[in-house]
């Protein structure tokens, strides 16, 4: 049905072997070596919480705020799901770094021609009909690639099959308006560094709600300042009138007959 691709990350299946990061580094020709946090050389990383491993990477949001804030259109949401980045268009303003609620984009600070680096959702592999390198490398099926709709059904099926094992929530189904990375967890997501305060509204919508207040502010401010101006102006006029009255003492006051 839907052409949109996604990945399902089942934390109960992850054993922390880090094969996903290794495959990612190989695919993107990054220097090998285990890294614990997202960086310019690690587009995915494993975060450990007690005995659980949580994969971190670009969530490839359905309505991405990095895309909406980019003033030159260097970032774009492609139909198949990946949020793509065009380094040739990028001016290096780093607004996307500010806007991303997951702190995913990383900036090449030490480069003279800096770019943004982040997970590409292996867009070139997807185009060739392959699955992303990390999903292919995962030995336990903790990272599973597929159509977004099908994976949602699969995730719901897993929760229903073993309701005691999972928290009854698919993270990414509608968080920040829905993402391409779904997480299933045995413990509440808040304990794993996910933030429940972000809400379900796509962030660009929230931006628009802030932007749409600007006309109100302008009109209220305009009226206010107009009032201030009117009062000041009137005071000056009154003063001028009184001064002109004083200058001419011979003229009788108007209220006397």
């Amino acid at each position: 049905m839907s052409q949109k691709k996604a990945m399902l990350i089942d934390l109960t299946l992850c054993v922390g072997c880090n094969a996903c990061q290794g495959a990612c580094k190989e695919e993107n020709r990054l220097p090998p070596g285990e890294e614990k946090y997202l960086s310019l050389t690690a587009y995915t990383a494993l975060d450990k919480y007690n005995d659980l491993y949580v994969r971190r990477m670009c969530q490839h949001c359905d309505v991405p705020t990095c895309v909406s804030v980019c003033p030159v259109g260097a970032l774009s949401k492609t139909e198949a799901g990946p949020v793509a980045y065009d380094a040739e268009k990028c001016i290096g303003c780093r607004y996307c770094l500010q806007a991303c609620p997951f702190h995913v984009p990383k900036y090449e600070w030490s480069s003279t021609k800096p770019r943004i680096q982040k997970c590409k959702f292996c867009a070139s592999r997807l185009a060739r009909g392959l699955q992303p390198a990390c999903a292919e490398a995962c030995p336990t099926g903790a990272t599973q690639f597929g159509d977004r709709e099908e994976l949602l059904v699969e995730a719901a099926r897993r929760i229903n099959a073993e309701p005691a094992k999972f928290v009854h929530r698919i993270y990414g189904k509608d968080d920040v308006g829905g993402t391409s990375m779904f997480y299933l967890s045995p413990v509440p997501f808040e304990q794993l560094g996910f933030d429940s305060r972000m809400g379900k509204t796509p962030m660009p919508m929230l931006t628009m709600s802030a932007l749409s207040k600007v006309p109100n502010v302008l009109s209220v401010g305009g009226v206010l300042l107009g009032g201030v101006w009117w009062i000041t102006n009137r005071r000056a006029k009154v003063q001028a009138f009184e001064a002109s009255q004083k200058k001419d003492p011979t003229r009788p006051p108007e209220d006397k007959p």
């Binding site: 946090y37 997202l38 971190r56 991303c100 702190h103 990383k106 560094g193 996910f194 933030d195 972000m198």
Partner: peptide
């Protein structure tokens, strides 16, 4: 910020 996902610690 909201998320700690991609933050350096």
């Amino acid at each position: 910020s909201f998320h700690r996902m991609g933050l350096l610690r």
